[in-house]
Structure formats: structure tokens, C-alpha cells
């Protein structure tokens, strides 16, 4: 039996002691935040790579393999998801049905569309050198890829927005978990995905012009993300008793030091500052800013997934 004393006037003796549920929920460990991080990262890459090409009007030689890298990273994330399943041999059950009210069902099917889009984006984006080294039989494939380059880029971009949004919807739609239940979460995770996606692309050997664009877009995403975090905290702080507990968890609770140091300062403010200095002084880009952004993106998911399980509606009574 678990005894929980919430204040001096109420004592609850709880007879339930189910694993993963009591004394507080811990159903999702490292696998889910890692998946949400990688999913967001890939979503960001799926938006930014097409945007770079549409903006510059040219395929990027340095980033030509980035869609393939995105597919590999997404597969790592999906492997983490598989590890989380309690009944992994039933994985195919996701694909024997479509449940329109379930964000997870939307996500499962979305992932099946993401792979072909990434492969198409990769093939059509290969540089002329790389194409020349491939057997002649692949030529017709490139003719086809070039012909549909526009639609492929736009489809990849749209699927990227869908993927990034769904990772937030997954948690944001659960009324039972006050720390997750905010309409800001889909936009927050998408924006964080754009910023981490830009950070990863900055680590690849992109052309100088594209690199500068990425630094700018990364900075913009960071500013928007700071705004969304502020909106989320304001929503929690002014949303009634249950929401205020969620605000306290991030403002002064156990998670607060981690949230402010890893997510806000190290993951957003410091790289934003570094980006600005590099842009204004025309300094060569260092690895520091992108690595910090990636760390911050992972920390955001780890902290929110964990904090969301600490607070349930039932525990507030």
C-alpha cells in the first residue's frame, strides 16, 4: 500500500500498486523522448532541405545525402519506438487498421509516407558527379526524378510539417496529463524540430550560402521556440489549479533546474547568441551552436515526457 500525504488535512491510503503506474506513472522511459527528438529532427530536415533548394534554385552538393541521413535517423527513432512496445511482434497491428481519432495511428501511416518521400528527395537531389558514377540503368530514374522534382520537394516539406506536428499532438491531446495537455505542444515540437534539423544540416558540408541561410533560419526558429515556451508557461500559470501545478513543475519544481539550464539557456539562448555573433562578425561557424541546439532539443523531450508522467489529474486531489 502506498501512503501519500498531500497536505496536513488529507491523507490518502491507496491500495493499488500496479507496476509502471504506482506510486506515479512511468510507462515511457528513454525510448519515447529519443523517438520524439529524432522524429522532430527529421521533420525539420524534411522542411529545410526542400526550402533551401527552392530558395537557391539549385541542388546542394554538400547536402545531397541529407535525405538518406534523415531516413537513417528516423529508422533509429522507430527502433527506439519498437523497443518501447510491450508486444513488439504485434507491430503490424498499427498497419492493419486506421483509427482517425488516434494521433498515433495518423503517425504510423505518416511514417510510411515519409520513407518514399525521403528516398525520392534523395535520388532527385544527387549531384551530377554522383549520378555519373552510377550505372547507366539509373539514368531513366534520374530523368523521372528531375521531372517530378518540384512536387517531390513540396510533398517532402508538407510531410515534414505533418511529422513534426504529430510528435507534439501525440502528447498534447491527453487531458489526463496536465504537463502535456497544451495546444502549444504541436507547434513547439515542430519549431524545435526545425531548429534541431537546421543544426544537424549545419554540421554537414553545405555550401557557404546555404550555411548562412541555415544559421539565419535556426536563429528564427529559436526565437519562435522561446516565444512558444513562454506562451506554454503563461497558459499553464493562468489555466486554473491543475495547470498551475504544471507551471510550477517547470518554474520552481524538480524539473526547473534542468529545464532552464539545458533547454532555455544551453539549448536556446547560448546558440542564438553564438549564431548572431557568427553572422555579424562573419566568423567561421563552430560546432558549438548546432551541438547545443541538438542537446537542447533532446533535453526538451526528455524533460517534458518525464514531467508529464509525474503529474496526473488524480494526484492533484
Amino acid at each position: 500500500m502506498n501512503t501519500a500525504i498531500f497536505d496536513s488535512s488529507v491523507e490518502i491510503l491507496h491500495g493499488r500498486s500496479n507496476p509502471m503506474i504506482d506510486p506515479h506513472m512511468h510507462i515511457w522511459g528513454w525510448e519515447i523522448p529519443v523517438y520524439l527528438f529524432l522524429g522532430g529532427l527529421v521533420a525539420g530536415m524534411m522542411v529545410l532541405v526542400p526550402l533551401l533548394e527552392l530558395r537557391t534554385g539549385q541542388r546542394s552538393r554538400g547536402l545531397q545525402h541529407s535525405p538518406l541521413l534523415a531516413a537513417v535517423l528516423l529508422s533509429l527513432g522507430m527502433f527506439a519506438l519498437l523497443l518501447d512496445l510491450e508486444y513488439p511482434t504485434h507491430l503490424y497491428r498499427f498497419y492493419s487498421t486506421f483509427q482517425p481519432t488516434s494521433p498515433m495511428s495518423w503517425g504510423s501511416w505518416l511514417l510510411m509516407l515519409v520513407y518514399p518521400a525521403l528516398i525520392a528527395a534523395w535520388l532527385g537531389g544527387l549531384s551530377d558527379d554522383t549520378r555519373g558514377r552510377l550505372p547507366a540503368a539509373a539514368r531513366s530514374l534520374f530523368t523521372l526524378a528531375d521531372r517530378f522534382r518540384g512536387p517531390v520537394l513540396w510533398a517532402t516539406l508538407a510531410l515534414g510539417v505533418g511529422l513534426g506536428t504529430y510528435t507534439g499532438l501525440l502528447l498534447g491531446t491527453m487531458a489526463a496529463r496536465v504537463q502535456w495537455n497544451t495546444a502549444v505542444l504541436p507547434a513547439l515540437f515542430l519549431t524545435s524540430g526545425l531548429s534541431t534539423g537546421a543544426a544537424l544540416l549545419m554540421l554537414l558540408p553545405a555550401e557557404a550560402e546555404r550555411k548562412a541561410l541555415l544559421v539565419r533560419w535556426d536563429s528564427l526558429a529559436i526565437v519562435v521556440e522561446l516565444g512558444l515556451l513562454l506562451t506554454m508557461l503563461l497558459g499553464f500559470a493562468t489555466g486554473g489549479a491543475a495547470s498551475r501545478v504544471a507551471a510550477d513543475a517547470l518554474l520552481s519544481g524538480q524539473m526547473a533546474p534542468w529545464f532552464w539550464s539545458f533547454v532555455v539557456v544551453a539549448g536556446l539562448l547560448v546558440p542564438l547568441g553564438l549564431n548572431q555573433v557568427e553572422l555579424r562578425r562573419h566568423l567561421p561557424m563552430t560546432l558549438a551552436a548546432p551541438l547545443l541546439v541538438l542537446l537542447g532539443g533532446l533535453a526538451l523531450r526528455v524533460i517534458l515526457v518525464s514531467a508529464g508522467q509525474d503529474i496526473s489529474l488524480a494526484s492533484l486531489h
Binding site: M25, D84, H90, F94, M104, M174
Partner: peptide, 13 residues
């Protein structure tokens, strides 16, 4: 039909 994804456990208040 259950995969053990635990979404239902997270959703149950």
C-alpha cells in the same frame, strides 16, 4: 490487437 504502446495508459485519467 494490442501492441503494448501504452497510449491508453497515458490517456486514462
Amino acid at each position: 490487437r494490442c501492441t503494448g504502446c501504452k497510449a491508453c495508459m497515458a490517456a486514462c485519467p
